[in-house]
Amino acid sequence: MDHYIDITVLPDPEFPATTLMNALFAKLHRGLVDHGGQDIGVSFPDVVQSKRALGQRLRLHGSSRSLDRFMTTGWMQGMRDHVTVTPVQPVPAGVQHRVVRRVQAKSNPERLRRRLMVRKSIDAEAARAAIPDAAARMLELPYVEIGSRSTQQRFRLFIEHLEPVSTPREGTYGSYGLSSSATIPWF
């Protein structure tokens, strides 16, 4: 994680910035799936967790070689008029590090009950007793809204930036560029 690229969503009179960020992130996800590596991380340098806003800038992290290779794949097709992209740049010295991870909401008690009924072979009444309506947990995190290629349904992908730490942690990144344990440089 010694290099990065900033991609900034430009103001557009026809589309809100959140719509463009959703589209950019969906394209990024498809590009990372096609890329097949687990060596590119993502962060949102302008995130404001308390306002549930990711900001208008997405940052890719990785090695110079990996980022160069990824950017030549054409994953941004259709977005070039809506964004500015910096060249691959080295990460500044002495930066903090941060885990940027996906958080999945357990917000639908009915779905959780159905799952419990199948897994434990219990009836609806026992499932309702085990998982009351109050078990719904609403997340107060920033998110992108993307569509599933397999189910064609739209969903919110909640993204949490953990507190900065002084030492980096190695690891892999998933097809969203997020990791539950590996850090990205934070500056």
Score class of each variant (00 low, 15 high):
I40D: 03
E125S: 14
R101V: 11
E145I: 08
G41F: 08
M1Q: 09
I7H: 04
T84A: 13
V95P: 03
R65M: 12
A53V: 11
L112K: 13
L32C: 06
T183A: 05
S180D: 15
R119C: 08
V165D: 07
S107E: 15
I7S: 08
S107G: 15
I159M: 06
T86F: 03
L32I: 07
A23Q: 14
D68L: 06
R156S: 00
F158A: 09
P90W: 01
R59T: 04
A134M: 04
M21K: 10
E140I: 09
L60E: 02
R154H: 13
Q38R: 12
G94A: 05
E14T: 13
A136N: 02
R119G: 09
Q104T: 10
L141T: 04
S63M: 01
P164C: 11
R69N: 11
T183Q: 03
V118F: 11
R154K: 14
W186T: 00
G171F: 02
D123Y: 02
V48R: 13
R80T: 15
M21P: 09
S166H: 12
V118I: 14
L28G: 04
A23R: 14
P16A: 09
G62H: 01
F158Y: 13
G36I: 09
L67Y: 00
L20N: 10
M1R: 11
D12G: 07
P16D: 14
V103P: 01
V91L: 00
M79T: 06
F155P: 00
Q56G: 15
T86G: 06
H35A: 12
Q38M: 14
D2G: 12
M1F: 11
S121P: 01
L32P: 00
R137N: 13
D39Y: 06
H29A: 10
R111Y: 04
I131W: 01
R80F: 14
D68F: 03
L54C: 07
G171T: 04
S179M: 07
V85K: 03
T172G: 12
E163F: 09
S64E: 14
W75A: 12
R52H: 06
P87C: 05
D6K: 06
A127N: 03
P45E: 08
Q152F: 13
E110N: 10
E125M: 09
V85H: 00
T73Y: 05
P92T: 08
Y173G: 03
